[in-house]
Every structure is written in structure tokens, then in C-alpha cells.
Design a protein around this nucleic acid. Structure first.
Length: 302
DNA sequence: AAAAGCCACAACCGCCTCCAG
DNA sequence: GCTGGAGGCGGTTGTGGCTTT
């Protein structure tokens, strides 16, 4: 014997709610509270399943729901929390007053996820998609059939293996990060933005960095994330190496990184469009070289 | 102007956890 | 400890509206 359904579905209405149904539900809950959802539809005169009533109330009719477009701050918070919590939409919603898990989930899938992909960020791991770019480069070579590199098949196989290993490693790493973060409250995002703009070679990446606002007092937050106080401090920390487990965060374009193994801000990095006059509000574009070491020596697989 | 394709989002489905009996 | 109902959650689907062809 399987479990009985939550309600008898015969004769119960499905699909979009009418304004009349909404009003019945609102009136009933305002008078009596929702009580037991299973018995609510009958008492309220609705030909709906209790579960459907609960969802309609929780996701749409509740008076404390905040409708309308997500603000920049909300969007940033969602990305930040998602990088820590993953698809725990209810946990994310609990930190965004007035927003429902369903609404956040939809917004993620229809907006944020696509934007991260366009930016070259993996929306699951929040890491730059090194694998696809390397693969793309190899495929380009094959497609354009450069005579000196015709025998590129072994290299292609290696790259495919690398992707598989990378995915496995990322999964393990994410599980560890999740365990660590479950015992501490999520920290507010700090300040570094990055957008991958160019690859100089397989392991060296150039990121467009921006935004000097909302600076924190300390170089390292309670979450051990690296931030910088002002341009002088930034210059003096150009050789700062980001240890495993620390994050680089953005507050401009809502792109937030998950930890990378090691980041070195090289002295050779150039700073352009630097507005030292008004650092707090300026949008500064800097270029950093992030050294991302090989995840694994693939020679044993070849 | 009509058909096809795409997108956003409300709603549903099935599984899970919690808890009272 | 077991069972089953209620509620919660995340993934998926359905549909209406907008855009493109």
C-alpha cells in the first residue's frame, strides 16, 4: 500500500487561481488563520487541494510578500548565499525578507544563472569555466585545421579528462565548503569584483576588477575574505596571495567568486582608469593576473 | 498578419523530514 | 520503534505574453 495522496483529487480544481478564489482564501485566513491546510479548502469553500492553498498563500497572497523587480543588493545577496548554500532556496529566502523561495528560484534560473554563464562563471561552482575555454581553444585549432597542429587528438582527450576531474574535484570541494559554512552565519559580501576578460595562457587569467565602494575596515573579514581599504593599500598588497578557502567578492556586477586555490596580484598588473580623487564612489577598472595552478597532473591518465 | 520560438513565472509533483499517536 | 499525516522543499511543467521570422 502506497501513501494516500494529501487530498482527494477528484473534482478539485487545478491551474491558475481566479481573483475570486484568491479573495476566498485571503478572507478565510484573515478570519481564522490557516489552521490545518488539509481542512482549509472545505471550510473556506474552495475546490482546491490544501497543498495548492498553502502554496498560493505562501508564494503569492501573504501580505508581507514584496513584489516587483529584485534590487541590486538582493541580487548580490542571492549570488553570495547561493555560492555558500547551493540550491537551498528556502534558506536563501529566509535571509531575504519578503521574498519567497519559489520567486528566488525562478529569478535564479531565468536571470542570474544565464548572466553568470555569459560572464564565463559556472553557476553551480561559481568558478571561472577554465575547462570550456581551454576546450574551445583546442576545438578552434581542430576546426581551422592548422597544419602544424593536425595531430591534436591526444591533447583534446586530455582536456576532456581534465574537465571530468575538475568537476569531481569541485564537487568534493563544495561539500567541504558547505560543511564549514553550516556552522557559521553567512558573512556579508566584501568588495572585489572580477570579470574574466582575457587568457594569456592556459593557467594565467586576466580579470577586470572594479568598484571601490562599501569598503571594510579590515583587510580580512571574519570569513577570511580578502578585501582592500583604499588604492594605496591595494598597491601595497599587490603581492598578496590568497590562501585556499578565502574568497574574492564583488559588489558591482554581482559576480562573486568561490575560492580559488591561489591568487597572486602581480606587480606587473596595470591599473587603468584610476580615479584616486573619489575612491569611495568611483568605478575603477584594474587588471590583475590571477595565477590558477593546475588542479591535477594529468600525465598519469595519458 | 500569422506562425513559431522564446521567456518568465505561477503552479504542480513527488520526495523528504518531522512529529504525534 | 513504527506508522502515517502534515507541511516543507526543490525540480519540473504548463501557460500566457512577448518577440522574431
Amino acid at each position: 500500500m502506497g501513501r494516500l495522496p494529501c487530498c482527494d483529487k477528484d473534482g478539485l480544481k487545478k491551474g491558475p487561481w481566479t481573483p475570486e478564489e484568491d479573495q476566498k482564501l485571503i478572507d478565510y485566513i484573515q478570519k481564522h488563520g490557516h489552521g490545518t491546510w488539509r481542512t482549509l479548502p472545505k471550510n473556506a469553500g474552495l475546490a482546491r487541494c490544501g497543498k495548492s492553498c498553502r502554496l498560493r498563500w505562501a508564494n503569492y497572497l501573504r501580505p508581507d510578500i514584496r513584489r516587483g523587480r529584485f534590487s541590486f543588493e538582493e541580487e548580490e545577496t542571492i549570488i553570495q548565499l547561493h555560492s555558500v548554500l547551493g540550491n537551498k532556496w528556502s534558506a536563501i529566502a529566509a535571509r531575504l525578507p519578503g521574498r519567497t523561495d519559489n520567486e528566488i528560484k525562478n529569478y535564479w534560473n531565468t536571470h542570474i544563472r544565464k548572466r553568470l554563464l555569459r560572464s564565463g562563471i559556472d553557476p553551480v561552482t561559481h568558478r571561472p569555466r577554465l575547462d570550456l575555454l581551454n576546450l574551445s581553444s583546442l576545438l578552434n585549432t581542430v576546426l581551422f585545421n592548422q597544419p602544424a597542429q593536425l595531430d591534436i587528438k591526444p591533447q583534446l582527450n586530455t582536456e576532456l579528462l581534465r574537465i571530468a576531474v575538475n568537476l569531481l574535484q569541485t564537487q568534493c570541494q563544495n561539500q567541504n565548503i558547505l560543511k564549514q559554512n553550516l556552522v557559521q552565519e553567512p558573512q556579508p559580501p566584501s568588495t572585489l569584483l572580477y570579470n574574466p576578460v582575457q587568457i594569456s595562457n592556459a593557467n594565467q587569467w586576466q580579470y577586470n576588477e572594479a568598484s571601490c565602494c562599501n569598503l571594510s575596515e579590515n583587510l580580512v573579514t571574519a570569513n577570511n575574505d580578502f578585501i582592500y581599504e583604499n588604492m594605496d593599500q591595494l598597491k601595497s598588497s599587490l603581492s598578496y596571495e590568497l590562501p585556499v578557502g578565502q574568497n574574492l567578492y564583488s559588489n558591482h556586477d554581482s559576480v562573486i567568486s568561490t575560492p580559488v586555490s591561489s591568487v597572486t596580484l602581480n606587480n606587473s598588473s596595470t591599473i587603468i582608469n584610476n580615479n584616486l580623487e573619489d575612491e569611495k564612489d568611483s568605478y575603477c577598472s584594474h587588471f590583475f593576473d590571477f595565477q590558477i595552478p593546475d588542479l591535477l597532473d594529468m600525465s598519469e591518465f595519458i
